[in-house]
Design a protein around this nucleic acid. Structure first.
Lengths: 336, 336
DNA sequence: CTGAAAGCGCTTACAG
DNA sequence: CTGAAAGCGCTTACAG
């Protein structure tokens, strides 16, 4: 392995001090009133030699690592892996790198992860917090920029970027109600997470507004495809009048389709469905499934903007930035 | 923000030199014959104060960052995001962190990314290489451990972990042939990638072995769901005798299902299908889709093992490690 | 058994 | 306009 060049080598070769080289490399030549001639000479040499300063040394010196920690519930989920993809593109343009990790919604694991990333001095955090870690988040945000997403804490003031969960189900249910569906059910998870609560409220409020009766099925949070489709099947047997279902997540909708098929019912002939949270397979499904879509790229954009504005001091560290991104109702063929 | 403790503070408080503290913290107390009493005192104090050495400073000093670069085609793909998830769990246990990036199969972007990660001194690389970057990979692996996965180069000796693509389609086609299907088609992408070639060879060889006639449809690499399902539909119109299809990727299979539905054909009544590469939605699809599954966790395990064995010098740097992981044929209801 | 010192490769206040 | 020097927070060969 060929020896890596250091700024000392460059300085020695060129007979200038390494401060001068450093200033030139960091674009402070003008500011430090270094002659254009010298600057050009250094730049040319550096380019020739393909010298790149060590980010490590720079980090130790500046205290900045240009790394962002992306802490999601599970990186392999459709939603999170797409956010990761879009964030990467944005970070790339700004010279930041992203380290990810999965909390699996476990508060202890999350606290441990935060500790580990602090040792590595990442500059900022993007987090989908599990329940009960308000104090860890609070400590963290005292020291570094933190933006929560997907969910936040009502009892903790933080920056966050979320979608309008409430409005999302309001739109879905309103659409169905206006199409004259009379027995619109809601299938959700047993979860205290804010975003789930809000999806449910959007459903309940809209159902009532239209003078209909709410029918809610709650499935245990830990479930596999079979247990949830079984639960949905028995629910439908008990409520055969159901003519439409709004699902609180995309995977619940897939289990729902399975249950509906098993009951030999037709979508949308017998039952129409709308899923919260779009999925790339929905458009190639049979039938293509209507969805309340989370605008992934827009979310990632807002997330990155909120964080980078703090990292680069464009927004005061203590100024709250709370962004609510609207959802989009995509009607495909799973609704009449 | 409370001032972070440094090793100097610890040493000063305890009236010992920082070398001693460093040795104790790194478990070299015995080796350096430091008294148990002193060691205990230091450890206790460090624990009390919650002191954690700065990984950054340690990295600059040791030249190791305990970071691994995971460079995949696209982090949001089902396959890659799941590999990322499993790798994270393994890395976590070993004290490594993972930085990801997406090449989008672009050689120039990939070369640029490698350059950026080298500046950051990551310790090792896990890469799904785009075509034509043999020389960049070759340079890289001269300096650092690199393991390719999903695909590799026939003209470059490297460590790699791949699945047995050839055997994967052999198994799928054999299964169908033994079930007496006579007109088994293969739908793949126009791609020169090794893994695609091998899937195709597995198909062709097995078809011939059974005395059948190969029918191959190649869809442009850049495609959306509609163009591919259109292509499949016209293919099926031209070859109405087709009684089974093996798809080279999971998304092609979804497009295929769409095309088959549009033609009012029944799965598996009229046409049976098997997809290469399982997907979490397959089991909740209508009908559930049979698949040649890539064992995600096993792949991640092998990948990590190959890399970590080199990072920790358990395997000589120049000893090639080339692992081929078998696929698993999962029969669901899309085949009779 | 333990400490003083050099070194990793940068940045930046300070001095001239 | 430019350089010598300190500092970021560690590790580790060397000396005693």
């Amino acid at each position: 392995m060929k020896k890596k060049l250091s700024i000392n080598d460059i300085a020695a070769q060129l007979n200038v001090s390494k401060s001068t080289v450093s200033f030139i490399l960091n674009g402070k030549a003008k500011e430090k009133r270094i002659s254009d001639k010298l600057a050009q000479r250094v730049l040319k040499y550096v380019k020739e030699k393909g010298y790149k300063p060590s980010e490590l040394a720079r980090s130790l010196s500046t205290g900045k690592t240009r790394m962002i920690c992306l802490m999601v519930e599970k990186i392999s989920d459709y939603f999170f892996s797409h956010i990761a993809f879009h964030l990467e593109a944005l970070a790339y343009k700004s010279g930041y790198k992203i380290i990810y990790c999965s909390t699996e919604n476990d508060p202890d694991k999350t606290r441990e992860l935060i500790k580990l990333f602090r040792e590595r001095h990442v500059d900022g955090y993007i987090i989908t917090p599990p329940p009960g870690i308000q104090s860890a988040i609070s400590d963290l945000k005292n020291d570094l920029p933190v933006v929560l997403f997907d969910r936040y804490f009502e009892d903790l003031e933080t920056d966050y970027v979320v979608i309008d969960n409430y409005k999302g189900t309001v739109n879905a249910v309103s659409y169905l109600a206006e199409k004259q569906y009379k027995h619109i059910a809601f299938v959700t998870l047993q979860s205290e997470q804010l975003q789930m609560k809000e999806r449910e409220h959007g459903y309940t409020d809209t159902i009532k507004k239209h003078g209909l009766t709410p029918m809610v099925l709650k499935i245990p949070f830990e479930n596999d495809a079979d247990t949830s489709s079984n639960a949905i099947r028995s629910f439908l047997k008990k409520k055969p009048e159901t003519d439409a279902i709004v699902f609180a997540t995309n995977y619940l909708a897939l289990s729902g389709v399975k249950a509906i098929n098993e009951l030999q019912l037709n979508i949308p002939g017998d039952i129409s469905i709308i899923a919260f949270d779009d999925h790339s397979v929905f458009s190639v499904y049979n039938p293509p499934i209507s969805a309340v879509a989370q605008p992934l790229e827009a979310l990632a954009f807002q997330l990155f903007k909120v964080l980078i504005d703090k990292l680069e001091n464009r927004v005061p560290i203590d100024q709250l930035q709370q962004i609510i991104v609207p959802t989009r109702l995509i009607i495909r063929q799973s609704t009449k």
